[in-house]
Simulated assay, not measured.
Amino acid sequence: MGGTMDSTKQQRRRGDTRRRIQDVALALFAEQGYEKTSLREIAERLDVTKAALYYHFKTKEEILVSIFEGLVRPVEELIEWGREQPHTLETKQEIIRRYSEALGG
Rank of each mutant, 00 (worst) to 15 (best):
G3D: 15
T4N: 15
T4G: 15
D6F: 14
D6S: 14
D6K: 15
D6M: 14
S7M: 14
K9L: 15
K9V: 15
K9F: 14
K9A: 14
Q10F: 14
Q10D: 13
Q10I: 15
Q11S: 13
R13S: 11
R13N: 12
R14W: 07
R14V: 11
R14Q: 14
G15M: 10
D16F: 11
T17F: 10
R20S: 12
Q22I: 07
Q22E: 10
D23W: 04
D23M: 07
A25L: 01
A25I: 01
A25N: 01
F29C: 08
A30E: 06
E31D: 13
E31P: 03
E31H: 09
E31Q: 14
E31A: 12
Q32I: 05
Q32R: 13
Q32K: 14
E35K: 08
E35C: 00
K36A: 14
K36R: 13
T37L: 08
S38E: 04
S38M: 05
L39W: 03
R40M: 09
E41M: 11
E41L: 07
I42F: 01
A43F: 07
A43C: 05
E44H: 05
E44Q: 06
R45D: 03
R45Y: 02
L46C: 05
D47E: 04
V48Y: 04
V48T: 09
V48N: 01
T49Q: 02
K50V: 13
L53P: 03
L53H: 03
Y54V: 05
Y54W: 10
Y55W: 11
Y55S: 09
F57H: 09
T59M: 10
T59E: 10
K60R: 13
E61T: 10
E62Q: 15
I63H: 12
L64S: 12
V65H: 10
V65N: 10
S66I: 06
F68E: 11
G70E: 03
G70N: 00
L71A: 12
V72L: 11
V72N: 00
R73P: 00
R73Y: 08
P74R: 00
V75T: 12
V75M: 13
E76N: 12
E76D: 11
E76K: 13
L78G: 00
E80M: 06
E80R: 09
E80F: 05
E80Y: 06
W81V: 06
W81A: 05
R83K: 12
E84Y: 05
Q85K: 05
Q85T: 02
Q85A: 02
Q85W: 01
P86Q: 03
P86W: 01
P86L: 07
T88C: 03
L89S: 04
E90N: 06
E90F: 04
T91L: 02
T91Y: 00
K92N: 01
K92F: 05
Q93I: 05
I95M: 02
I95R: 00
I95N: 00
R97W: 02
R98D: 03
Y99H: 09
Y99D: 03
S100H: 08
S100V: 11
S100F: 08
E101F: 06
E101W: 07
A102S: 11
A102Y: 06
